[in-house]
């Protein structure tokens, strides 16, 4: 049986690259839309260092803002609303500064352990908005203790 030589097909192998850009752009769009930018944001605070030394601070230098277990806010002994707190606290800080040659008083937020965390942040937020309040510290109150 004679084998006939097949006619050679002169075809060059080619990869179609015309749609490559489309594929790439599709991938870009997918990544752009699926990327969620997690912006970290919050309120900064530096904790006091733990030392064995007991530092006593003059009673007048400390301004106490307390939150009870119900979430009520007190400036020293006086019950205040979050709206009042800013003005009253600013006034107190300014009074202290005027009396003590510009020394910064220490604002302490005393939160009852039963109070919601949100309340503490509300108060902390208000104090952060007062530029005069430079020294802020956190403390907790344990009920019955």
């Amino acid at each position: 049986m004679p084998i006939l030589p097949r006619p050679k097909l002169s075809s060059e192998a080619e990869i179609p690259t015309a749609s490559m850009a489309d594929i790439a752009f599709l991938l870009i769009i997918f990544f752009m839309t699926s990327t969620v930018f997690m912006r970290d944001k919050g309120l900064k605070l530096v904790l006091p260092e733990k030392t064995d030394q007991i530092v006593t601070i003059g009673g007048e230098r400390v301004i106490r803002v307390s939150i009870n277990d119900q979430g009520d806010i007190f400036l020293e002994e006086e019950a205040v609303t979050p709206l009042d707190l800013k003005d009253k606290l600013t006034q107190r800080i300014l009074d202290y500064k005027a009396k003590h040659e510009g020394k910064d008083p220490l604002v302490i937020i005393r939160t009852n352990v039963e109070a919601p965390y949100e309340r503490m942040i509300d108060v902390f937020d208000i104090i952060k908005q007062i530029p005069e309040a430079r020294a802020v510290s956190l403390a907790s109150i344990k009920t019955g203790g």
Partner: peptide
């Protein structure tokens, strides 16, 4: 916070929303 003070990790940020 107390545990962080123990660990001497004194810089803290409370996460909040605007």
């Amino acid at each position: 916070l107390e545990a962080l003070r123990d660990a001497k990790a004194l810089r803290v940020i409370f996460a909040t929303e605007f």
